[in-house]
Design a protein around this nucleic acid. Structure first.
Length: 658
RNA sequence: GCGCCCGUAGCUCAGUUGGAUAGAGCAACGGACUUCUAAUCCGUAGGUCGCAGGUUCGAAUCCUGCCGGGCGUGCCA
């Protein structure tokens, strides 16, 4: 039962009676923000009053009179300018909870009346290149949305659009031809390919840093210094407004200058690493044009060179295996992983199709789609004939539509690519996909505690597996400390490992999901692993605490449910908990309606908080009577299952004891 | 220059799409373990929702203009 939907349905009927066009105002029935205003509130009297030209309180009165909710709610109250406050009847609340008890895995989640087919495009790592912190959000948010939409009854096809056809692959091909150890490549392909990528990348970066990056930065530095001097000379303007502006520019230039110096410093340090290593220095000297060669290898692969193609086929499985290790740790799966290479021979067709629609214009030798409202064109073929990711993305839409006929395709990709997606979607619509929902599920950057994008000290991206290691390691320390502090430790060594793993991985996922995806967020082990507040560890602890009541009391939850024991609600804490338990499906609806998993974490945190109040105020095993004890056990059981299922939908596992 | 996003407690963040007195967690202060996991809970204090206008019964939320920040911006992805 979705209470909110039910109430809205009742209001819709009443609203229609009052004004034929007013049915849509039913959406103004919402959960109350404050318990003193009841459980739900209807805010529609004010707009309706305006519509009918009557005072809102009078309209509210009429609405209440024609409203049929007597079976669900206590008599409605009208408050303030015309709010209608609704409080669920205790008997009805209890009835609904009993329905939940029988509904073991769904917990009151009603399948949507409008099932849709979604394609979810998320994670999208590059092969041959280790996954890093930047992949967390896409992977975790995408996976959570996938699970929630499925739970609500939608058909979801997850597709990992892997980068398996780009320059990184050219790097390992080049590496295998020049730096490879045949025995290692045979015995430990994954490890050796990782080493090759790293080496080639390092050498290429060395030359580029030396010949391009550093001179460019030095040039910029000079320009900024010159500009600063010029500014100092001209800041004595009379106009205060102009003065302010130039002061601002001065500050910005100074800040930029400091940043440039820092960058330059880091770049020089990178050079030193190579210069101080004899083997690296020799290799750098032996491969001065390594970047061009890598591009040539990539181009040869694309052109169908038999040798490179064979290497690609030989190496790809190992690369995919490497990636899947991370997915196994994260517990993330995909229905498909059709990478860029899959679309390789469909790209020409994309351009031809666009030409057929009359959308292509040539500009400076490149084939472009010029879109209304955008100054930059959407380029689908470069002047040298090569295709771009715009082309691949269009081919992917074609394929997905042919194969799966989705109602919607969601791309879980960071916000910096929003322009690309706007143009992609606009182009797709012009080329025949007017009814398809195309959504960029964008998200912000993961920042370090300094507020800058989260990087290692040397300025490279933080590796994902190391990140997971550290979270698990920290969790293990806490688990051990706490368990050792007990009179009798609760956990075996194996169990401690398992608990640490679930807490550590859960912490990273939860921290990510609990933030509104559109904003940047600060990555902090201490915060995400905290036992207080809206964290995975707190939720997992809440779950374990509930479960321990069952083990302590020797109660088997399934047997209790089947025993026909009744839920009785007397204490305010019991009522508040009961109401929250009934609202699980509303939380999931909120997640689905704008693709924001943080609505579910908020709900779970609130549920756990209400349970904590219940736990403090309502003894369970030591309740005054068996009836109350059984009733409270049933509430505990529902709480445990709701938390577990909620976390499960976020891709987070629970433990029975911790 | 143009485009998109952001600015909420000392810090990290929510805020159900325009609803009632703006909420959490951390940090600070004060309480609660012979009682189901104290890895916890309860209480106190903390706000010009960047600033100024506007829209209306009602604005953190919508519109305009400023201030401050991030990102993007024709042949990478």
């Amino acid at each position: 039962m979705n209470v909110l939907d039910e109430l809205r349905n009742r209001f819709r009927v009443a609203l229609k009676k009052m004004d034929s066009g007013a049915a849509e105002l039913a959406s103004m029935v919402l959960p109350s923000q404050d318990a003193k205003f009841g459980d739900y509130q209807a805010n529609c009297s004010m707009p309706l009053g305006k519509r009918l030209g009557k005072p809102p309180r009078e309209v509210a009165q009429l609405l209440v009179e024609s409203l049929d909710v007597a079976d669900i709610c206590d008599p409605c109250e009208i408050a303030g300018p015309g709010f209608i406050n609704l409080r669920l009847k205790k008997t009805w609340l209890v009835e609904q909870l009993h329905d939940l008890l029988g509904d073991t895995d769904k917990l009151g989640i009603v399948p949507t009346s409008n099932p849709r087919t979604f394609v979810l495009d998320f994670s999208s790592p590059n092969v041959a290149k280790p996954m890093h912190v930047g992949h967390i959000r896409s992977t975790v948010i995408g996976d959570a949305l996938c699970r929630v939409l499925r739970q609500l009854g939608h058909k979801v096809i997850s597709d990992n659009h892997i980068g398996d056809w780009g320059t990184q692959f050219g790097m390992i091909i080049y590496g295998s031809k020049h730096f490879s150890d045949a025995a290692k490549l045979r015995d430990d392909t994954v490890g050796e390919l990782g080493r090759l990528y790293q080496r080639v990348n390092q050498l290429a970066d060395y030359h580029i840093t030396r010949t391009k990056k550093i001179p460019a930065i030095e040039q910029q530095l000079l320009e900024h210094v010159a500009r600063l001097e010029e500014m100092h000379d001209t800041t004595v303007l009379k106009d205060p407004k102009e003065n302010k502006k130039s002061e601002k520019r001065l500050r910005q230039t100074e800040a930029r200058l400091a940043e440039l110096r820092q960058t330059l410093d880091n770049l020089r340090k990178k050079l030193v690493v190579v210069d101080e290593d004899a083997e690296l220095t020799a290799q750098a000297a032996a491969h001065p044009d390594i970047s061009d060669k890598v591009l040539a290898e990539t181009a040869a692969l694309h052109a169908g060179d038999a040798n490179n193609r064979a290497l690609w086929e030989r190496f790809l499985p190992a690369c995919l295996e490497e990636i899947s290790v991370t997915y196994r740790r994260l517990g993330v799966t995909f229905d498909h992983a059709l990478g860029e290479s899959f679309y390789h021979n469909r790209l020409m067709g994309v351009v031809e199709k666009l030409v057929g629609h009359g959308l292509i214009k040539e500009s400076d030798g490149a084939k472009c789609v010029f879109l209304k409202g955008y100054s930059a064109p959407f380029i689908v073929q470069k002047k040298d004939g090569a295709f771009l990711y715009a082309t691949t993305d269009l081919a992917t839409i074609d394929y997905r539509c042919q194969e799966w006929s989705p109602d919607a395709i969601l791309y879980v990709v960071d916000h910096r690519q929003s322009l690309h997606f706007e143009q992609l979607f606009a182009t797709a619509r012009l080329s025949g996909y007017a009814d398809l929902e195309l959504q960029h599920i964008s998200f912000g950057t993961v920042l370090g505690e300094d507020g800058r994008p989260y990087k290692t000290r040397s300025g490279t991206a933080v590796g994902l597996s190391g990140l997971l290691d550290e979270a698990v390691e920290r969790a293990l320390r806490t688990v051990c400390d706490n368990d050792d502090a007990r009179d009798i430790p609760l956990l075996s060594a194996d169990e401690r490992q398992l608990v640490a793993k679930r807490i550590g991985i859960g912490a990273i996922k939860y921290a990510d999901l609990a933030h509104n995806r559109t904003s940047d967020y600060v990555f902090s082990y201490d915060k995400m692993l905290a036992m207080n507040g809206n964290t995975a560890a707190y939720m997992q602890y809440s779950y374990a605490r509930v479960r321990s009541i069952f083990s302590k009391g020797g109660v088997e939850a399934d047997a209790l449910r089947e025993s026909g024991a009744a839920i009785l609600i007397a204490e305010p804490a019991e009522r508040a908990l009961a109401l929250a338990l009934l609202q699980f499906s509303e939380a999931l609806e909120r997640v689905a309606s704008d693709y924001r998993p943080n609505h579910l974490t908020s709900y779970l945190f609130e549920l756990a908080s209400l349970y904590a109040v219940f736990f403090e105020n309502c003894p369970v095993l030591k309740a005054a009577s068996t009836e109350v004890r059984d009733s409270r056990l049933l509430l505990c059981d529902l709480t445990a299952r709701t938390i577990a299922q909620g976390l499960n939908l976020l891709g987070i596992e629970t433990v029975e004891r911790m």
